[in-house]
C-alpha cells in the first residue's frame, strides 16, 4: 500500500478545485476504490472524500424525469417503494448487486465507475493486461475466459463491464450530469462507456478532473412493465453471468417499444437494438421473446469457456420479456 493524503470536500466546487495534478482520486463509498488500492491497481497520492457534500444524495421521481443524486446509497435508492413499484428494473438492478453491507456503503454514482472483475487484471502485475499496464498484452485471450465478453471485445481486451445498475440505466436512456473545470455537461450513458479498442485502460469518457453530480432518467408511464433479470453462479452476492434489463411499452399484447440491455456479457453496458427492433409492432409471445433474445446476441464472439452464454443470454432475455409483460398486465 502506498501512502496517500486524505481530505474531505464540502462542495462540488471544492472537489473540482482539488482534482488537479497527478494521482488525485475522489472517493464516495470506497467499496471499489479501496479494493483496487489494496490490489495495487489504483495508486492515488491524494484522495478527496465527496461523501460529505450536501444535497447530492437526493432522489426525486418526477413526472418527466427521475433524478438520482450521485451520492445516494444503493440501499436508499433500491428500497424506495415508489421506485420498486414504478421502475422495478432500476430497483432490482441495485438489489441484486453486491451484498447488503456493500450496498449500504456504495453510492449510485460510484457504482457506475466500478472496474472489471477480470481475474488477470486483478491478480497482479505479473499477468499481461492492457487495461492495467497498457501495451503488455491480454492474458485473458486464450485463458480462463468464462467471465469474459462476447460482445464489444477487441484483440486488446475482452473484459466485461461488471455492474448491474448501469445496464438498467442504459436500457432506460439515462444520462449523467457532470462538473469539471470546463463547466457542466450532460453525457448520455450510451456515450459514457468506451469500447476497449486499442486503449482498454480508459473505461469511460469521463475526464480525470470531472465529477458525476447526478443521474437523470426520462420518466416512462410504462416503467412497471420492466425487470432486471440476473443469472449468476449463486443466488446473491455474485456478479452476473448474464443479465437482461428490459422495459416494455405495450398496447395489449402488441409491443409499441422495447428497451433491452445486456449485462455480464459485454465490454460495456450493452443495448440490444436488433432485439428491440424485432419486437416493435409485434405481438409478444414466448417464441418471439426467444427470437429477440437470439437477436440480442447476433454477432457475439465466444472464447473457450463462455460460449454457453449465447444460449443462456437469449433465454434470460426471453424470460425477462415475459416477466415484464406479466407485470404490465398486473397478473
Amino acid at each position: 500500500m502506498q501512502p496517500f493524503t486524505y481530505s474531505k470536500a464540502a462542495t462540488s466546487d471544492d472537489v473540482i478545485a482539488a482534482l488537479t495534478g497527478e494521482g488525485v482520486q475522489l472517493i464516495a463509498g470506497g467499496t471499489t476504490l479501496f479494493d483496487l488500492m489494496k490490489l495495487g491497481i489504483e495508486q492515488p497520492r491524494r484522495i478527496v472524500d465527496v461523501s460529505g457534500i450536501g444535497g447530492l444524495d437526493e432522489v426525486t421521481l418526477g413526472p418527466n424525469e427521475l433524478v438520482f443524486g450521485a451520492l445516494a446509497s444503493m440501499t436508499d435508492v433500491a428500497s424506495s417503494p415508489a421506485l420498486q413499484e414504478n421502475y422495478p428494473v432500476l430497483a432490482e438492478s441495485l438489489l441484486k448487486a453486491a451484498s447488503q453491507q456493500l450496498r449500504n456503503m456504495a453510492t449510485v454514482g460510484g457504482n457506475l465507475l466500478q472496474r472489471t472483475r477480470c481475474n488477470y487484471f486483478r491478480n497482479g502485475a505479473m499477468y499481461a493486461c492492457n487495461k492495467r499496464n497498457p501495451g503488455s498484452g491480454c492474458a485473458a485471450l486464450g485463458g480462463v475466459d468464462r467471465g469474459h465478453a462476447l460482445l464489444g471485445g477487441s484483440e486488446a481486451c475482452i473484459a466485461v463491464y461488471p455492474g448491474d445498475w448501469a445496464v438498467a440505466l442504459t436500457a432506460l436512456n439515462a444520462s449523467v450530469d457532470t462538473q469539471s473545470p470546463r463547466g457542466l455537461r450532460s453525457i448520455p450513458l450510451a456515450d459514457l462507456y468506451r469500447l476497449p479498442g486499442q486503449t482498454p485502460d480508459r473505461d469511460t469518457e469521463l475526464a480525470a478532473d470531472e465529477m458525476i453530480l447526478r443521474i437523470r432518467v426520462p420518466a416512462a408511464s410504462y416503467g412497471r412493465a420492466s425487470t432486471y433479470h440476473k443469472i449468476r453462479d449463486r443466488e446473491s452476492y455474485a456478479f452476473a453471468l448474464v443479465s437482461a434489463a428490459v422495459m416494455l411499452d405495450l398496447d395489449g399484447d402488441r409491443v409499441r417499444a422495447a428497451h433491452i440491455a445486456l449485462g455480464g456479457v459485454a465490454t460495456r453496458p450493452w443495448r440490444a437494438p436488433q432485439a428491440e427492433a424485432l419486437l416493435t409492432g409485434q405481438t409478444l409471445t414466448p417464441a418471439r421473446a426467444l427470437d429477440a433474445g437470439r437477436a440480442a446476441f447476433e454477432g457475439a464472439t465466444a472464447g473457450h469457456h463462455n460460449a454457453f452464454k449465447i444460449e443462456l443470454g437469449a433465454r434470460a432475455v426471453a424470460d425477462a420479456l415475459m416477466i415484464a409483460q406479466q407485470r404490465s398486465t398486473g397478473q
Binding site: 480462463v144 449463486r234 446473491s236 456478479f239
Partner: peptide
C-alpha cells in the same frame, strides 16, 4: 458451486477471493 480455477499457462489459483470463489450464501 466451488471450484478453484486455474489457468494452465500460469499455474496458481485465479479466483482467489470470496467474490470469485463461489461458496454458497443463505439464499442458496
Amino acid at each position: 458451486r466451488e471450484i478453484s480455477e486455474q489457468d494452465p499457462r500460469y499455474g496458481g489459483v485465479l479466483n482467489n477471493d470470496l467474490a470469485d470463489y463461489v461458496v454458497p450464501v443463505n439464499a442458496d
